[in-house]
Structures are given as structure tokens and as C-alpha cells.
Amino acid sequence: MGGTTVRALDGVDIEIPEHTFTVVMGPSGSGKSSLLYLLGGLDRPTAGEIIVNGQRLDLMDENALALFRRKTMGFIFQSFNLVSSMSALENVAFPMQFAGITASQRNEKSKVLLTQVGLADRSDHKPSELSGGQQQRVAVARALINDPLLILADEPTGNLDSQSGTTVMQMLADLHKAGRTVLVVTHDARMTRFATHKIFLLDGRVVSEAEYQSAALQPLQP
């Protein structure tokens, strides 16, 4: 844009082992969301390789990427991204429609997941009838519907009050304990309590925790 090239990520070389809870920390514009979208196959790198579960995402075409996302990824977004006209149950079941699963199977599995996130009694409610925390729990259930290998959460507590944020964090931690691989991009330092791995980003580069802390504590220039 505007003729200036911005490198959102530069020289990032990371490995995320299976069954880990990875927290990516960084200030606004550090490239943490870009990292998540690249890992999730929602964006393409201009250079470099992204390998998930042995597959080169950077070499896949659009169709292959869509199938890859459907089978391998579960996304949780800061703004929930629920479809306003659909009930909680329909929102949870939504990804399965594209997989060609029958309606009865979709509903059955969605009900189980809504029960797991504590919203069994809200399955017929529209997003506008749910609180922020409840909406994010619906989004968590939706992320799990296709049994993904990797759960990617982009600022999942960013739009939530402290209490709801903690609930969602705990939920992600429980998923990790259940054997799933979770990667969370966040500002929220509380999330690091659950992390098995931490990645710190500054200006598109991976830095050490010490460098990240010192940058965070650096006084503002007058």
C-alpha cells in the first residue's frame, strides 16, 4: 500500500511441537496475527516455507488450502465471527456443512460440544441473545467441530471482560490437557500461565523473552 513495503514477519523460524500450548506475545503490529494466519493457511507468505503436519502450505492451491483448513484447523477470533442469523447450535455446526456431513450428525455433535462449553441450554439462541463470553464459547465449540489437529486463537480474550476471559483461557488450557495443540496470539499476559511454549515477537522478528521485556519496559521518548 502506498508504495511502501512492510515486512509483517521477517526471518521467523519457529517450530511448534504437537500437543503443546504455545502463546505468541507481541505488541500491536508486531506480526503475531500474521503469523497465526500464515500457520492457518489463511494467508500466503511472500517467501519461506510453512510446514504443518508434514504439508507445505505455501505450495498448496486455494482448494487444497480450504480442505486443509477444514480438516486440520480450528479458528477462534477476537470478534467471535458468529453468523448473526444462525442459532448457537447452527453456528457450531456451520463448518460441517462444507464437509458434507448429514444434518443429524451435525446437530448431534454440535449439541455435545455446546454441552462441553456449558451452553447446552442456549443452543437455540442467536448470537445477539448471548453475552460476549458465551459467544466466544460458541466460537470455541465451532473450532472443535471438525476435530482439528491445531487450534489457532487470535486474541480470544480481547473483547471479553476479565471473568469471561479467564473462562475462555481455562477452556483452551483444558483442550491442551485433552491432547490438542493450541496456539494463542494475545496481548493478555495471563495467558502465559497456561503456556508450554512462548514466542515473543517485536517488529516481525522473534526475540527472546528478555529482549521483549526490556522493550516493553522502555520509557517513552519525549
Binding site: L42, R70, F75, F77, S79, N81, P95, F98
Partner: peptide, 16 residues
């Protein structure tokens, strides 16, 4: 637009 983004994120193909 965001709904379209969501559809794609959850595995909808361009054809879908």
C-alpha cells in the same frame, strides 16, 4: 465480507 472470510476459514472452498 467477514462472513465470507469465516466461511473460508472453516473450510469452504471457492466453489462453495
Amino acid at each position: 465480507t467477514r462472513e465470507i472470510g469465516l466461511m473460508k476459514a472453516v473450510g469452504a472452498t471457492n466453489r462453495d
